[in-house]
Each structure stands twice: as structure tokens, then as C-alpha cells.
Simulated assay, not measured.
Amino acid sequence: MAGKVVLHYFNGRGKMESIRWLLAVAEVEFDEVHLETRQQYETLLSDGALLFQQVPMVEMDGMKLVQTKAILNYIAAKYNLNGKDLKDRVMIQTLSEGATDLMEMIMMLPFSSDTKTKLDNIESKSKSRYLPVFEKALSGPIYLVGGKLSSADVLLFECTLMLEEKFAGILAEFPNVKSFQGRMTRIPAISKFLQPGSKRKPQPDETYVKTVMEVFNIKAPFL
């Protein structure tokens, strides 16, 4: 029998946060091992646990899973969050990657030396490229694809929260997305994950940035 899911990553959001969100919505309990030193990372490398020398890494069902998209797709497929057929799945993955593209731009901000310019770029692209797509997709349906909760909905919800942290009121021009956000907060598993004391991580701080840079031997902001 497989043991509890274990996440190997920093004590912060990064690419692992979407995995945390999806597991929470699937009501899967998980433990975390936080990377805090270069030695921990080198141990994972020497053990062969990191196939491409990268984290996140998730121990699940007797496997050591790497590559964020692969991990998310595995969880979505296992817990029925991946649509009813191949057409649903490709649309779910398409919309998921759009939300992820946007979130990754925000994730990189703490490592940037030119935050203001990048914030302006993120806000502009959010309003002109990404949010209009989701607004149209939600013009009638309750959920993005197939009338059923999927991983794309979970990632979009996470994305909207991240956007509002940086740009208060950004969803005012996108009422369908804002209504969707409200509906998602009423899902019991999501409501629980939003409560204080859950394993949801806060916005990255200086300690998180310093730890990432030390573990990966990064000497200065690289963006």
C-alpha cells in the first residue's frame, strides 16, 4: 500500500503551489520536506531522485515524480479532474498552461532586479492576452471545460488570487472570471485550503528568495 504523498520543495509557493492546490481540491493529504540547504539538494541529486536535476519532486504511489506539468496531469487523471474525453483533456491542458504562463511571470518577480517594469508587463498581458480568454470561456458555463470541475479551474482560481495580490481590482473588467472566483471559494475543499493554518503558502519573502538562491548557488538576481 502506497504511503502518504510527500512533496519535496522549498517552504514557499513556486511551482509546487499549483500541486498543493490540486491535491487539496482532490482532498489528498500530503507531507512536505522543505529544501533548506545545498546539501539536501545534492543528496536528492546523488540519490537519483531528480530525473532532470530539478524540483518540484513528489513521492506518490511508489514513484518519485518530477516535472510540474507531468505531476499535475497525473493528479488530475487519478482524481477525475481531467475531463471526460480526449477533447476535454486537450482544452483543459491548453487553459491550464495559459494560467500557468501567467503565474510563472509572477513567480519570478522576487528574483528580478526590475520589478516595476515586469509588474507593468504582467498587468498589461493579463488584461490583453490572458483574462479575455478566460472571460469568454466562462461566458455561460459554471466551469471552464465540460461543465465539470477540472484542474484548469483550480489553476485559474489560484491565478486570480495571485493577480489580485499584485493588482487590486484587476478582475473588475472581467465579471465572468470574478463570478467564477466566487463560486470556487464555496467549494468545501477550497474554502478549507484558504483558511489560516492550511498548507497554502504566503507570498514569497526575503527568506524564501535567499534560500532558493543558496540551494541553487545563485549569486545575484538573475532577471
Rank of each mutant, 00 (worst) to 15 (best):
E29G: 13
F30T: 07
S128E: 11
V177H: 00
L86M: 12
Q53C: 12
S112F: 07
L86G: 03
P221D: 09
K87Y: 13
K136V: 03
E29I: 04
M1N: 09
Y79H: 15
E123V: 00
D205F: 01
I106R: 10
R20D: 06
F174H: 09
L95T: 01
G48P: 04
F167I: 09
L194R: 02
I75W: 01
K201H: 12
L163A: 06
M91S: 04
D101I: 11
F222Y: 15
T160Y: 03
T160P: 02
V25W: 07
V25C: 07
F52L: 15
F180C: 02
T43I: 12
Y208F: 15
G169A: 10
F157M: 06
A220M: 15
Y41R: 09
V90H: 02
L149I: 10
M1W: 04
F10S: 03
D31A: 06
M1P: 00
L131I: 07
E214D: 15
M57F: 05
P175S: 15
Q53I: 04
V55T: 13
M108R: 12
I71E: 06
Q53W: 11
Y130R: 01
I218E: 04
K210C: 03
Q203K: 14
D85V: 10
A152W: 00
N217Q: 15
E165Q: 10
I218H: 03
M105F: 06
R186W: 00
Q54G: 08
L144V: 01
M16K: 09
D61H: 14
E17K: 11
K15F: 07
I19T: 14
P202N: 04
M91G: 01
T207Q: 13
M1Q: 03
V28F: 03
D47A: 15
F180Q: 06
K127V: 02
K192L: 06
Y79N: 11
T160W: 05
S96P: 02
I75L: 13
V5S: 04
V6I: 15
I218R: 12
V6H: 01
I190A: 10
V215S: 08
N176T: 03
S151L: 08
G182K: 08
D120S: 15
G146A: 07
K201I: 04
D120R: 12
S124N: 13
S151N: 10
F167P: 05
G169W: 02
L7N: 08
